[in-house]
Amino acid sequence: MIDLTDIHVDGPAGPLLRKTSLSLAAGERVGIVGESGSGKTLLALSMMGMVSDQLTVGGAISVEGRDMTNAVEADWRHLRARRLSMVFQEPMSALNPLRRVGDTVAAPLIRHQGYTREQARARALSLFEETGITDPERRLSQYPHQLSGGQRQRVLIALALACDPALLIADEPTSALDAEVALRITDLLVRLSRERNMALLFISHDLAAVSRTTERIIVMYGGDIMETGPTRAIMQAPHHPYTKGLLAARPKLWAPILSTHGKRRLPTIPGSVPPPQDLPRGCRFAGRCPVEMAHCATERPALIHTATGTAACHRQTADGAGGQS
């Protein structure tokens, strides 16, 4: 559905996203996991043609067979109005506070798809129903501040669905929400993706949220892909030392209680993410990696196949089994 070949983004201080290739099939649910500065949002923005003018984007991109590599803003706008949609983290700031939410959803329908006001209203109502907004009829004429965080996020999803997109990108859509509400939003995204055969790209720092929502995971760090693979396989048997560290470092609900030694220290990844200009030239994870080898900091490892997916780690090539310490 969407194909990225050797896409990369450079900032004034150096590369922010290294050469990366990626494709999504129709109806596929893919997650991008990464910490701050991992380049996960940049990767998503480059799929929308929305990377800031101050950065340079290179590489080839095609959407539904259409080559967008040299597309101008008008082409991207055309595509965004019809095939690609995005949902953001903060549902309050993404909605115009002075506009009834029904009008917000109806506006693009009238503008891009030639609906009449009545048709647009009817469509907005059905979108509200589809996204599980409670009392949808009444909500249409309410303002954003009258809705709860979860309802607002649903409105934004309804807005994103208005153009029947082939791909929905959700950037940290649950991070500002309470746990229970977040759970319902991820369930909604999964359901919508299935029912509409819509590809979903779910971006989050939260491994748990991503694993609930997606079939395939891309783990990013320092502007580079570390590992990819089926969600289940990555969560249960990660190959890359960064993924392993990340999974181990998550606080667990049960482990401390089941432990017989009282409060145990959590496993950690030493150090912190360096600023972009200080990232190592080789593997981005060099310097923090527990199984680092001499050439890791200087040579960039290629993404190679593992038992379940791909991983970019020199250990992977060295001993085949991959990243064992």
Binding site: S36, H205, I269
Partner: peptide
């Protein structure tokens, strides 16, 4: 905080 840093800070508080 990022997940990898979160664990460090929790450990620090316990220490």
């Amino acid at each position: 905080l990022d997940v990898s840093v979160q664990a460090q800070i929790l450990n620090l508080l316990m220490d």
